[in-house]
């Protein structure tokens, strides 16, 4: 019986997270279009529904109704598999992201995370590095020069930036002494946010996150002027939508990871000192997590419409000659802090 309840709770959490996640992804697209419009002094989508609020659904229906075209010289199986790998990796990563503290409901303690894995951070790193397979497969299997170049670029870029990302995370782990996301969040009590303690690490992880999610200014794998559409040139209909969704899902993961690792996760500074009720506190904390994520997401979009794309050699230079040393420096900095202050 207990097992069933546990399973039920887990299932409910999964459903909630997946639903929220899908909605967020589709609305992220909407907001991306809105914000880009505002930055360019336009109005953005405003036809479907109230201020264009139903635009994401219209887009989804359109994509569903499109013809699925598979190029004749594509490797059909891998061509179809690639978007699913990408999507699967994006969604699976959510499992370990904590979005609130433990809450008590009907006499049970429920963790506000799908799974509180004690090697959560490693899990995320492992899965995100799997994501590159999706893009590389897509690029190779399409049988198109553009796609192949896009795929190669994406793998090179991801591998390069994973290094500095890993080292940036290492700094956090040094401080929190745990790979468990919950523990990392809890270690950032008050204003002890890692972003404030190790600003260099914060910068490197943000930059790496941009690179890992293939967002501007690092969207070389799909650089339109050079590669038509990059790895997804030969994709249409829902398979294309798969990549599209995955990109935005990855953005959400990246922002969740940044929030978790560097911006105090679901922590609201000193909320336990306000003497609020347990439920309210938890609510505020979940909200604060969502708000932080929203801000980071906004930052993602904002940067996209402000900074032009890097050249490929610049990207590599930046990755290996700047970001990598910086993340090492950050590690030394954190180690020094620990040495000096005995945290």
């Amino acid at each position: 019986m207990e097992l069933l309840i546990q399973a039920g709770i887990a299932l409910a959490k999964i459903l909630i997270v997946i639903t929220v996640m899908l909605l967020t992804v589709s609305y992220l697209v909407y907001f991306e279009r809105k914000i880009s419009a505002w930055i360019q002094n336009r109005r953005g989508p405003n036809r479907v529904g109230w201020y264009g609020a139903l635009q994401p659904f219209a887009d989804v229906f359109k994509l569903l109704l499109k013809e699925d075209i598979v190029p004749s010289n594509a490797n059909k199986f891998i061509h179809s598999l690639a978007p699913f790998i990408t999507l699967f990796v994006s969604f699976a990563t959510y499992a370990v992201i904590p979005f609130g503290p433990d809450i008590k409901l009907f006499g049970r303690t429920i963790q506000l995370a799908l799974a509180d894995v004690n090697i959560g951070v490693l899990y995320v790193l492992a899965l995100t590095s799997l994501g590159v397979y999706g893009l590389t497969f897509a690029g190779w299997s399409s049988g198109s020069k553009y796609s192949l170049l896009g795929g190669i670029r994406s793998s090179a870029q991801m591998i390069s930036y994973e290094v500095s990302m890993g080292f940036s995370i290492a700094g956090v782990i040094l401080l929190s002494e745990s790979l468990r996301p919950m523990a990392i969040v809890e270690s950032q009590y008050g204003f002890m946010w890692n972003a404030l303690i190790q600003p260099i690490g914060f910068i490197t992880i943000v930059v790496s996150a941009f690179a890992e999610t293939n967002r501007l200014p690092f969207d070389l794998p799909e650089a339109e002027p050079e590669l038509v559409g990059g790895y997804h040139t030969e994709y249409s209909s829902m398979k294309f939508a798969g990549f599209f969704l995955a990109e935005y899902a990855n953005m959400i993961i990246a922002s969740a990871m940044i929030v978790t690792l560097y911006l105090g996760g679901w922590q609201f500074p000193y909320i336990d000192k306000f003497g609020l009720s347990m439920g309210l506190t938890a609510g505020i904390q979940v909200l604060s997590f969502l708000l932080k994520m929203a801000l980071v997401l906004f930052f993602f979009i904002w940067v996209r419409w402000s900074i032009p794309r890097f050249r490929y050699d610049q990207l590599m230079n930046l990755g290996w000659k700047v970001m990598f040393p910086l993340s090492l420096l950050n590690l030394i900095w954190v180690a020094a802090l620990i040495m000096i202050f005995n945290i």
């Binding site: 505002w38 930055i39 002094n41 336009r42 910068i203 904002w302 419409w305």
Partner: peptide
């Protein structure tokens, strides 16, 4: 980084400018 921040500031400012779109 300061240059990026400058650029970001510019785009942020233009978000609140009047819109040119004619519906």
């Amino acid at each position: 980084i300061p240059e990026i921040v400058k650029g970001l500031g510019l785009t942020l400012k233009s978000m609140f400018r009047p819109k040119f779109t004619m519906e």
